[in-house]
Computed example of a mutant assay.
Amino acid sequence: MIVRIGMAPTASPLGPQTPAALALGLEREGFDSLWVSERVTGPALDPVVTLAYAAALTSRIKIGTAVLTLPGRSPAVLAGQLASLDVLCGGRLLPAFGLGQRHAGEQQAFGVRREERAAIFEEALPLLRRFWAGEEVTHDGPRFRYEGLRVLPQPAARGFDVWMGGTSEAELRRTGRLADGWLASFITPAEGERGRAAVQEAAAGAGREIEEEHFGAVVPYRRGPLSAQARDRFDRVRRRVSGPAPLNDVAPDLDGLEAHLKRLVEAGLSKFVLMPLSPPGDWDAELGDVRDAALHLQARR
């Protein structure tokens, strides 16, 4: 199993210096990838714009969305947008999709009611794959209608390995039926093991197979005691995932990060997106410390 380690910025207001310092530092230190999240009504920068900026500064690291909201977007327009970014960055884009935040403001922004999201997602994702394959798409569905529509450009590899997030039973089953990989967030090793097994079971039931190295997690970490703001954010995210859990089982201190990642590897996960719970004052120093703490795990096991 090959372990890959990337990083994501803390969910806080970002100026242009943060994605620049993070992207250049990840490339310099030998990390695998840069990932950004989406929150239209929050402090995060637009993920596609941010990744385009980061791609222009780098030549090696992969760039990914963790995760991009699909319901509320036109599959045809999104297919062309992501393919364009992939062509410009030389095939380094890793798209991961989700239903969107469970937040009334986010659902208003995307024009999608909460109860509609899953059905829209299941109609849209196969359409994206068809557009990326270069098909002339004819489709008459409940939400989208196309007649002989072809979208250009195509991605560098004429398609993507599409990853999905989520930890509910429905989300895990959907991942197994539709996705090429699973990227969970803020999970314990035990939850990672159960989720991986559920995704594999759903994939087998659909006559599909997901590669064993296509299971990963967004892993928060901390440096000493959390601020009240960081602890509140951690608690809110955990409530959305599956409920309370010991802090060390989800967000280890930097000194415990290596041992935590090893537990996740034992649970069958191998792709990791590390995220500091509190925004670093100096990204160059932060990346050097994380490199020393965990990057030696990024090798064939």
Score class of each variant (00 low, 15 high):
M1V: 12
M7W: 08
M7I: 05
P16N: 04
L22S: 01
A23Q: 02
G25E: 08
L26C: 09
F31P: 00
S33M: 03
S33R: 05
R39Q: 13
V40H: 15
G42C: 06
L45K: 08
P47I: 00
V49F: 11
L51S: 06
S59F: 09
V67H: 00
P75Q: 02
A76I: 07
A76R: 03
V77L: 15
L85N: 03
L93W: 05
L94P: 00
A96E: 00
A96K: 00
G100V: 09
R102S: 14
Q107P: 01
Q107M: 14
E115V: 12
I120M: 11
P126R: 07
R130F: 10
F131G: 02
W132L: 05
A133G: 07
E135R: 03
E135S: 08
P142A: 15
F144K: 04
F160W: 03
V162T: 00
M164W: 02
A170Q: 13
G181M: 00
G181P: 00
R196G: 08
A197Q: 08
A197C: 04
E201C: 11
P220W: 08
A228G: 12
Q229A: 15
R231K: 12
R233K: 14
F234R: 14
R240A: 15
A245W: 05
L247M: 13
D249G: 06
G256N: 10
A259M: 05
H260G: 09
L261Y: 07
K262M: 15
L264F: 14
L274G: 07
D284C: 10
L287F: 10
L295N: 04
R300V: 15
R301Q: 15
